[in-house]
């Protein structure tokens, strides 16, 4: 079972890192969420993997699984959930105020010296349509 858990953590983290490095807010949000999932499984595994042992005191128990990482994961899940909710709202606000969903905030608003809408965006058009679909 160890290799499966290790693989899951590895895949979640690496996809998380990849998505976090994307240029648009939606993949970044997804990436951070996947990273949070990865770290949750990791924290859980740090209490060592056991099967069928109780976490609280039981007279009949031969051995125990470590209850502390379970408590930590619970806390981490709640915090990550709240933060993700905040980040989604913030991303929507950024999309609304900057007029696009670029993380580096290429802005073409009225009161700013206008950046020309040149070919810079072209390579990422496919990404944009993907993220649009993802949102729907």
């Amino acid at each position: 079972m160890e290799w499966l858990i290790a693989l899951v953590i590895g895949v979640l983290t690496s996809t998380g890192v990849y998505l976090t490095l994307r240029a648009r807010t939606f993949p970044v949000v997804l990436g951070l969420t996947l990273l949070a999932y990865g770290v949750n499984v990791f924290l859980f595994a740090m209490g060592r993997l056991t099967i069928g042992y109780p976490a609280v005191i039981d007279a009949a128990a031969e051995a125990y699984s470590d209850p502390l990482p379970q408590a930590l994961v619970l806390t981490a899940i709640v915090i990550a959930f709240g933060m993700t909710a905040f980040l989604i709202v913030l991303s929507l606000k950024v999309r609304h105020e900057l007029g696009n969903d670029h993380v580096d905030g290429l802005h073409q608003s009225n009161d700013e010296p206008t950046l020309q809408k040149n070919k810079q965006h072209k390579p990422s058009h496919s990404v944009s349509s993907n993220s649009e679909q993802g949102r729907n």
């Binding site: 807010t25 951070l32 949070a36 990791f42 980040l87 950024v94 802005h107």
Partner: peptide, 24 residues
């Protein structure tokens, strides 16, 4: 808002790294 987004994202990444370090 733009500066805020950067701040939030880097600190969320920091939180994840913190958990990895604490877990280890």
């Amino acid at each position: 808002t733009k500066a805020g987004l950067h701040y939030v994202v880097i600190n969320l990444l920091g939180a994840t790294l913190f958990l990895f370090a604490v877990g280890t």
